[in-house]
Design a protein around this nucleic acid. Structure first.
Lengths: 225, 225
DNA sequence: GCAGATTATTGATGTAAATCAAGGTCTTAT
DNA sequence: ATAAGACCTTGATTTACATCAATAATCTGC
């Protein structure tokens, strides 16, 4: 009952119901001709160690890539939102598996066709190289998150999501607490507690568990330093 | 004295003094024309956010790249051994700082010259792209290490060093415990204790603090799984 | 060889996050 | 509407690692 009191009166609904979450708008960093495909929630897009025949661009929805460890732990490598390109490997096989987090529309581009074109179109070759470089930068930021304390990891994650998400009053989190935990190297309990704590200190506000409003960006940025 | 007894009689010198550490031999993955430069131990090669004018290849010695966080923590991003190429950025500035771990000879190649050549030499462009992709894979393996327990991180680190080092009976660690700790997101004490423990269980043997013999690769691989 | 500095190890204690456990809330289907 | 299941939160306890502190080994120059 202390529990119920806390959750209904103070923590869970401190924001007007009018605040809506926005979904990101598709962007087009690369002029990609490809087949639009639909992937229902939780379906596999490709598997680890499968030949990397295609390159993917999210049109709508969200995607997670991950690796499974032998003992069942899962490391989520990245989240991809509308506009993002993923599945582009240097080698012949995928380094991770990919799944749709929610029902997603995804542009699927044949790798061989792309590479053939890149062979004589320098601009395209350059764009593909840039894609790899961006992915490297993203992964380096991920490393930087993983050496920090739980609160700092969550803060960094929220800022990243906000930066990449549609400009809206609040950030829609497409992924579950488990997904976030596996991305940040934490447990769902720690993620949940940390979010609650950030809410209690007024840094964020959760209108629902998947919709976060960043109320004090300065504080978050400080945690992310 | 328990201390002294332990360290002198059982743990510290269980291997014949004859076991020598090997240093890696220079390899040449890229035919790089560049100026050979000498960097004394602990000198800076480039700084974070500096314009990335050069690409570097280690000839001898060892290099660490790292980022400093606002509160003084240091994240070591990577170690580079003879043959390795580093400092190649997609953007115009370096994402990390780089320092020589030991006195090092390093080939320094002008980026603008390289890029100009790559513009009409497709093979070279391809090699440069591959470099970025390799770095990405390396960083992804680093992420995978950081979500694991201390013992697993150290095991993974040792296996990586062994794989990259010269074929020799034992692996020479060019870097300090602090460097290793900052790479693995641990403290020097935890790194030290973990190594001691691996030695006590017969998985490795330390002829000196910088020279490790992997006695049970299977056990290490299991930890690294 | 010895003094001082640097680096590494070890021990005692503290703490952030994991684990274990129980409810609560939201979603979906009947 | 209600039941079943997935997802999320919260509390109690444990634990892996950090921190604090001291000593030991190794390196460097005199």
């Amino acid at each position: 009952m202390l529990n119920a009191a806390l959750s209904t009166s103070t923590s869970r609904h401190p924001v007007p119901a009018s605040i809506k979450c926005g979904s990101p708008e598709p962007r087009s960093p690369l002029s990609l001709m490809g087949a639009p495909m639909r992937y229902p929630r939780n379906t596999e897009i490709f598997g680890e160690d499968e030949p990397a025949e295609y390159l993917y661009q999210v049109v709508s929805g969200a995607v997670r890539t991950y690796k499974m460890l032998d003992d069942g732990r899962r490391q989520v490598s990245a989240f991809y939102l509308p506009g993002d390109v993923f599945g582009f490997e240097a080698g012949e096989t995928h380094a991770t598996s990919a799944e749709a987090i929610s029902d997603s529309q995804i542009l699927v581009i044949k790798r061989s066709a792309l590479m053939a074109r890149a062979d004589h179109e320098k601009d395209l070759a350059q764009q593909l190289w840039t894609l790899t470089a961006r992915e490297l930068e993203r992964t380096q930021r991920h490393v930087l998150l993983l050496i920090k304390r739980a609160e700092e990891r969550v803060a960094g994650f929220l800022l990243d999501m906000e930066r990449r998400a549609a400009k809206a009053k609040a950030v829609e989190l497409a992924m579950s607490r488990q997904d976030i935990a596996d991305y940040l190297g934490l447990t769902i309990e720690t993620v949940s507690r940390t979010l609650t704590q950030l809410q209690q200190t007024g840094v964020i506000s959760l209108s629902s568990s998947r919709c976060v409003e960043l109320r004090n960006r300065t504080a978050l940025a400080q945690l992310n330093a």
